[in-house]
Structures are given as structure tokens and as C-alpha cells.
């Protein structure tokens, strides 16, 4: 089993990339579990035709410890096991603590032992804003962290911050950086700027995604690109990225 986390600035395309990667892994014959770690709970929505999932924290709110694994995990397109951690009522509670509680609940119910995924993909909210959002990179959770960024300065800045957090946690035995995924927005000097970032945080660019209108069109259809346009060039780009990500994890033969 390989466990990875995807971090990046809000709106940079984490969930879209995560869902397409999950589909690409599934097409390779792998069992995939995608865990959305964002109170908005929309990481896996395009794997469900736009239907929102009942989140782990909603279930815990309703049923307490009696919640079952079958209620928390649903099967989306491509047979991807989908989980949404969820969060508190907006403006209240503690979202970071919520992520911890949701991941601990999955652990308590032996989610990985029961579903035995080959790939676990944590899709994590914008930035490492508190301990809760670092949870997916703690020991026993993700082993590799992938940063998604474009060449936009704010996105690069956010990616650098996350890389710094990962480096700070090295002594604790946390996940290590797997590399950067460059999601092109076609801004000036884009590749050059992201290469600089990669050098600064001592990692490499594992793959690039070109800017494509098919991504927005698939989103309108509430599907992944691999589901909506399986034969498109963009679908092939995601499939290529999936192979590159596995290679960066040292699991190209998974």
C-alpha cells in the first residue's frame, strides 16, 4: 500500500487532480481510497456525479462511536473508495481537530485492513494551518507529500510554506516530500519559477498538467476528465502523471 497526501493553495486544483489521479490509478487496476480532508467535503464529489457524501464527522455527530465503516466509505466511479472527513458548522468549532477525529475514527474502524487499498490519497485543505491539517502527514498516515502549484506567486508561496512544514517535521518521522505537480496556468516564466521552488525545497517536479478547457467542462458535467473524456489528451496527461507519482513513491511496479 502506498499512502500519499496532496497539499497546495486553495483553488489550485488539488481535488480535481486528486480525483483524476484516483481514476487513473483505478484504470491501472489498483484499489484506491481517496480521503478528502477539508470541511467543505467536496474532494470526491466528481467521483459521485456531483452528489455530496455524508461526511465522517456528520456520521459521528449523528451516531457517535456506533458509526460503521460501511457508512463512512462509499464507492465512487471506477470503484474508488471515497471518504470525506467533513468538519464543524462554518464559523464554529475546530476544523483541524475535526480532521484528527475523522482520521482516528477511520483508523479505529480498521478502514485500511478492511478495504485493503493499494493507494490511499489524502486531499488536504489549502495549507498546513494547524496541527489538524498536518495529521495526514503524521506517522502511520501518508508517506509522501505532493505539492500542487502553478507559476502564480501565491501558489508558489503556499507550496513553499507546506514544504517548510514537512521539513520541520522530519525529526518526528513524518512523511517526506514526493515532489511538485505543476498545474499550468500559463503565467510568464511558469516552469522556471516552479523549478526554482523545487530547488529551494530540495525536491523535483514529478509531473506537469497543461491548462485545458476539458477540465472545466468535465467539472460542469460533475465528472472527472477520465470519466467524461476518457480518450482525450488531457486524460492521457492524468494517466501519465499517475505513473510519475507512483515512480516518485518508488512503486512504479505496484
Amino acid at each position: 500500500m502506498i499512502k500519499m497526501a496532496i497539499y497546495g493553495k486553495g483553488g489550485i486544483g488539488k481535488s480535481t487532480t486528486a480525483a483524476n489521479l484516483s481514476m487513473a490509478f483505478a484504470k491501472m487496476g489498483l484499489k484506491v481510497m481517496q480521503i478528502g480532508c477539508d470541511p467543505k467535503a467536496d474532494s470526491t464529489i466528481n467521483l459521485h456525479g456531483g452528489r455530496p457524501l455524508t461526511t465522517v464527522l456528520d456520521l459521528v455527530r449523528q451516531k457517535g462511536k456506533a458509526v460503521t465503516l460501511e457508512e463512512m466509505v462509499t464507492v465512487g466511479d471506477g470503484g474508488v473508495f471515497c471518504v470525506e472527513a467533513g468538519g464543524p458548522t462554518p464559523g464554529m468549532g475546530c476544523a483541524g481537530r475535526g480532521i484528527i477525529a475523522a482520521l482516528e475514527m477511520l483508523e479505529e474502524k480498521n478502514a485500511f485492513a478492511v478495504y485493503q487499498p493499494d493507494v490511499v490519497l489524502y486531499d488536504v485543505l489549502g495549507d498546513v494551518v494547524c496541527g489538524g491539517f498536518a495529521m495526514p502527514i503524521r506517522e502511520g498516515y501518508a508517506e509522501k507529500v505532493f505539492l500542487i502549484t502553478s507559476g502564480e506567486n501565491m501558489a508558489i508561496h503556499a507550496a513553499a510554506n507546506i514544504a517548510m512544514a514537512v521539513e520541520n517535521f522530519a525529526d518526528r518521522g513524518y512523511a517526506s516530500l514526493g515532489g511538485i505537480i505543476l498545474n499550468h496556468r500559463n503565467v510568464p516564466r511558469e516552469l522556471e519559477k516552479v523549478q526554482e521552488l523545487a530547488e529551494d525545497v530540495h525536491t523535483g517536479i514529478v509531473g506537469e498538467l497543461p491548462l485545458s478547457s476539458l477540465v472545466q467542462q468535465a467539472d460542469e458535467m460533475q465528472q472527472t476528465v477520465l470519466q467524461a473524456f476518457p480518450d482525450s489528451e488531457m486524460a492521457k496527461e492524468y494517466e501519465k502523471l499517475a505513473r510519475q507519482v507512483l515512480k516518485a513513491c518508488g512503486k512504479e511496479n505496484l
Binding site: D171, R172, Y174
Partner: peptide, 17 residues
Amino acid sequence: TMMGIDLSGIARLVERR
């Protein structure tokens, strides 16, 4: 617990030091 401190991670760090 509410802060989400990772005491296992801190323990590993202290052990290394």
C-alpha cells in the same frame, strides 16, 4: 488532545536529540 498535538512525533524528536 483538542490542540491535536502529536506526542509520538515529539517523543521521536526528543529521542533523536
